[in-house]
Design a protein around this nucleic acid. Structure first.
Lengths: 349, 349
DNA sequence: TTGTACGCGTTATCAT
DNA sequence: ATGATAACGCGTACAA
C-alpha cells in the first residue's frame, strides 16, 4: 500500500484544509468548527493517520514529556526493595500530573550504549541513591542543563533532594522501646558502606551511608551504648543471620532489637523464634519502612512508616515545578511511628 | 549568560567549519582530520555545547532509541513479583544491545495523561501480561505501525510472543512427585481469572488465565484427580492461606502439594509447619519460578526454574530483530527442573 | 576531508 | 475559524 506513513499535511490535503488547521484539530489548542474537525478526522482515518509524530512534536515544542530515572545498579536489584518499587509508583504518579512518562536509565559508568544520560530525550531527571557514580551522572545531566532531583542521596551544593527525617523518626521508636522499660538493646543496621560487610560496628568506625548513619544516630540518642550489628543488605535472610548472632548466647540476649528496616526486623523475628524466643513476650523488635513484609503474618511490626510512595511523588512534583521555573518544595518528608504487635515490656527476670 | 542553548551550527561557526562537519565530528560517521576535530571539540566546550539535541536527532533519524514497556497495573504491584523484576532486568539488557532504553508506560484505560501509548516516542513496544485491556493497547500500538512483542500473554493472530513451556515443565515436576510415591496430591494455583477469587476449582470451571491453565494441565496429566485450590495472588501469605485450608483436617491431609509459584509454595510450607508438619518428611512441596524467596531459608525449594531474565532478554532481542525487519526468533523458552530439599517420599503410615 | 542543500513532521505566530 | 510562514536542530546525499 503506502510506501511511507501519512503525515499531517497529507491529512490536511485530503481534508482540504491547511496543515496548521489539521494540527489544531489534533491538539485542540484552538477552537475549530465542527465541520472541518469532522473532515479532518475522516481524512485521518482514511489515510491511517494515527496522530502527530511524537518526535517531530517534541522537537517543535522543545519538550519530550519524558523524565529519566537513573539507577546505579541493575534494575533487578533495585526493584528487589519494596521501598524502591513504591517510590517508583509514586514517581510515576507525580510526573503523570505533569504529563510525562518515566525512562529507565542505568548509569553503570562504562556503558557505551545509547541512549545514555548524554543522549536520552529527557526533560528532567531523577537520581536514585547516592553512590559515587551518581556524581558523574549528576555532572552529565547538569551539563545538559536538565533539571534534576536526587532521592535518598547527598548531591551536594544546590541540588534539590527528597529527604526523610530518619534520625528523628528512629529516635521516636527508640523512645518507645525505652518507655516500655528496655535497657538491653541491640541495633541491626543497613549496610555501612559500599563494601557491605557484615559485623559489629566498632565505636570509632565511620558510617558512610547517610541513611544508615542517620538512623543509627537516632537510636543512639536514646541508647548511647547499644551495640550495632551491620547487615550486608536489607533482606529477611540477612536479618535472620544477624538475629542468630544476637541470640546465640542465651546469657547475653538483649530484650529488644532495633532493626533499620522491616525486612531485617522480619529476619530477626524469625531468628528469635528459631531460638525459642517469643515475640514480643521474650524479645521486642522494631523495624523501619512500613512496607508489607510478605510472610510476616500474623505479626504486625512496630515500625516507622516511611512515605515511600509520597517520596516518589514529591520527586515527581519537584521536577514538575522546576520545569515551570518554580522552586521545588515539599521535599522534606516525615516518617510515622506505628505501634504493632512486636513490642512489649521486657520479660521480668 | 546565554539566552538559549548553543546548537551545532553555533559550534560550527565558532570552530570555523560547516555544520555538517561539526555533526560528523560528534557522530563519528565519517572520518575527520584530527585538527578540525580538535577545533570542533574546543568550540563545543567553550560554548557549553554537550552534544546534539536528542529530539532533533531522533526526528532526523526516524528513531528515538526508546522501547515502551506496557503494564496493565500499577508499577508498584507489577514489581512486587520477582519474576517481573527479573524480566525487566533482562529486557533492559536485551534492548541495550540495540542501544535503547525502556519507557515505562501504564495502560489503565482511562488515563488521559501524555505521553500515552498514543504519543510516546517509542520505536517498539513490549506488552506485559494478558488482561483484556492489553488488547486495546495492542490495537493502539499496531495502529501506529510500531513493532510489538507480548510477554506472558495471548495476543492473537500474528503477534510475536515469548512463551514458556509451562505445561511440560509442570508435568515434569509432577512426575518427580509421583516417582517418589505420592498419590494424595493437592494443587495450589495462581489466580484463575481477573476476579482473583480464592477457593477450590470446580471440575467444570474454566480457567481463563493461560499460565494457570497450562500449569494445571501439566499437573493433571500426572494426577488427573488432584483437587486444585486457587490463590488470589502469588504471594507467601496467600500460599499460607491456601495451606491452612489444605492442612486443616488432619485426616485428609495430602502427602504432597504442587504449588504454581515459589511464593505460594513458601506459604504452603509455612502453613504446614504451623500445623506441626515437617517438610519434606511429612509433606512434600514443589514450587514454580525458581526465584529467590526471601525468608525461606534453610529450605531449598524443589521447583521449576523459569528463565525470567532470559524471557526479558528474548523479548528485547525480538524487538531488536523486528526493528531490523527480521523475523523474531528464540521466543520459546524452557523451564528447568531443580530438585531441592522440600520433596521426599511420603511418610509410611 | 569538507561543504552545500534540503527535508525530517510538527506547531507557534500572526495575519486574515 | 482558518491559513501562510517560519522555525525547531539535526543528519545525510551529493558535490567539490
Amino acid at each position: 500500500m503506502s510506501t511511507r506513513r501519512a503525515t499531517i499535511s497529507d491529512v490536511a490535503r485530503e481534508a482540504g484544509v491547511s496543515a496548521s488547521t489539521a494540527s489544531v484539530v489534533f491538539s485542540g489548542k484552538t477552537p475549530t468548527s465542527e465541520a472541518t474537525r469532522a473532515r479532518v478526522i475522516a481524512a485521518a482515518a482514511s489515510l491511517g493517520y494515527t496522530g502527530p509524530d511524537p518526535r517531530a512534536a517534541s522537537l517543535r515544542r522543545g519538550r519530550s514529556g519524558i523524565v529519566g530515572v537513573v539507577f546505579d545498579q541493575h534494575l533487578g536489584t533495585a526493584f528487589l526493595d519494596p521501598v524502591t518499587t513504591h517510590m517508583m509508583d509514586g514517581l510515576a504518579d507525580g510526573v503523570s500530573r505533569l504529563g510525562a512518562a518515566l525512562l529507565l536509565l542505568r548509569d553503570d559508568g562504562v556503558t557505551v550504549s545509547e541512549p545514555s544520560l548524554h543522549t536520552a530525550p529527557i526533560d528532567a531527571a531523577v537520581l536514585i541513591g547516592c553512590s559515587p557514580r551518581m556524581r558523574d551522572s549528576l555532572e552529565i545531566v547538569r551539563g545538559r542543563g536538565i533539571p534534576v532531583v536526587v532521592v535518598e542521596g547527598d548531591a551536594g551544593e544546590g541540588i534539590p533532594r527528597v529527604l526523610l527525617d530518619n534520625a528523628e523518626a528512629q529516635r521516636e521508636a527508640a523512645l518507645h522501646v525505652a518507655a516500655l522499660g528496655h535497657r538491653d538493646v541491640v541495633i541491626v543496621t543497613l549496610p555501612t558502606d559500599t563494601a557491605r560487610r557484615r559485623g559489629w560496628i566498632a565505636d570509632d568506625a565511620e558510617v558512610r551511608v547517610d541513611v544508615t548513619a542517620d538512623r543509627l544516630a537516632g537510636a543512639r540518642a536514646v541508647f548511647p551504648d547499644a551495640p550495632a550489628l551491620a547487615a550486608a543488605t536489607s533482606s529477611i535472610d540477612e536479618g535472620a543471620i544477624a538475629g542468630r548472632t544476637i541470640f546465640a548466647d542465651p546469657d547475653r540476649r538483649p530484650t529488644a532489637v532495633i532493626a533499620q528496616s522491616d525486612l531485617l526486623a522480619a529476619g530477626v523475628i524469625r531468628a528469635a523464634e528459631e531460638a525459642g524466643l517469643r515475640v514480643p513476650h521474650d524479645v521486642s523488635v522494631t523495624g523501619f519502612d512500613g512496607v508489607v513484609v510478605d510472610g510476616l503474618a500474623p505479626h504486625v511490626l512496630t515500625t516507622l512508616v516511611q512515605p515511600a510512595t509520597a517520596k516518589g511523588r514529591a520527586a515527581g512534583e519537584a521536577v514538575a515545578a522546576m520545569l515551570e521555573d518554580a522552586e521545588p518544595s515539599g521535599l522534606a518528608l516525615s516518617c510515622t511511628f506505628r505501634e504493632g504487635t512486636t513490642t512489649a515490656p521486657p520479660p521480668t527476670r
